[in-house]
């Protein structure tokens, strides 16, 4: 079998999920957007995504392939894992943006500290210090912690709103600069998210 050919009947496979000629399941594509048949956009209609997810699940799930050839069973497992992984990423606006950033060559995993504005770091550091003081304090700080939580949550909402606008910008223009801005806002959001986790941990302790 050659690349681009159906493993079963050797007709051209053209990157489809199923061979057009013999209908056997092909090795799945690994790009989440392509897998779901979506354009590479940062804004996604989540209802449409869910519909596609259910439809593809019905076609690909291993439950549907127990009586098939081993090859198809393997592809079904593979394809369903990609489907589920992809659904988890694409339905989450933050993970989705990180996916696009990685795809566009932004090395998300190896960012240098200089990519973060110093004022933000200072702010986060101070917030962390204040939180640590609250938590280690002897007196009950529950009200202050709850106040901090709602403040952080409001910050996260604002970040999400800004992200939404930036997503629109990139979807419309496709310019790299708008992605740089997306990354900056994502970083900020990540810090806020961490603070919220910390407060919640303190509150549930």
């Amino acid at each position: 079998m050659q690349a681009g050919q159906c493993w079963q009947c050797e007709s051209p496979a053209e990157n489809n999920l199923f061979c057009k000629f013999c209908n056997s399941l092909q090795r799945p594509l690994t790009d989440y957007y392509a897998f779901f048949g979506l354009e590479h956009k940062l804004n996604i209609d989540n209802e449409d995504l869910q519909r596609r997810f259910y439809q593809l699940s019905k076609l690909l799930h291993p439950d549907r392939y127990t009586r098939r050839a081993q090859r198809e069973r393997d592809y079904s497992l593979e394809a369903t894992a990609i489907l589920n992984d992809g659904y988890r990423v694409l339905r989450d606006p933050v993970k989705r943006a990180e996916y696009i950033l990685a795809e566009q060559g932004f090395e998300v995993g190896e960012q240098r500290a200089k990519d973060v504005p110093p004022e933000l770091l200072e702010e986060v550091f101070e917030l962390n210090m204040a939180l640590e003081e609250l938590v280690s304090g002897a007196s009950s700080v529950r009200p202050q912690l709850e106040e901090a939580r709602s403040r952080f949550r409001a910050m996260r909402r604002e970040a999400d709103e800004r992200l939404g606008d930036l997503y629109k910008l990139w979807d419309a223009s496709g310019e790299r600069d708008s992605l740089v801005a997306v990354r900056g806002e994502l970083n900020r959001r990540k810090y806020i998210e961490n603070l919220i986790t910390e407060v919640e941990k303190a509150l549930s302790a």
């Binding site: 497992l77 990609i82 589920n84 992984d85 988890r88």
Partner: peptide, 8 residues
């Protein structure tokens, strides 16, 4: 709570 099959 990740839908299975799932991979990492």
């Amino acid at each position: 709570n990740s839908t299975i099959p799932a991979s990492a």
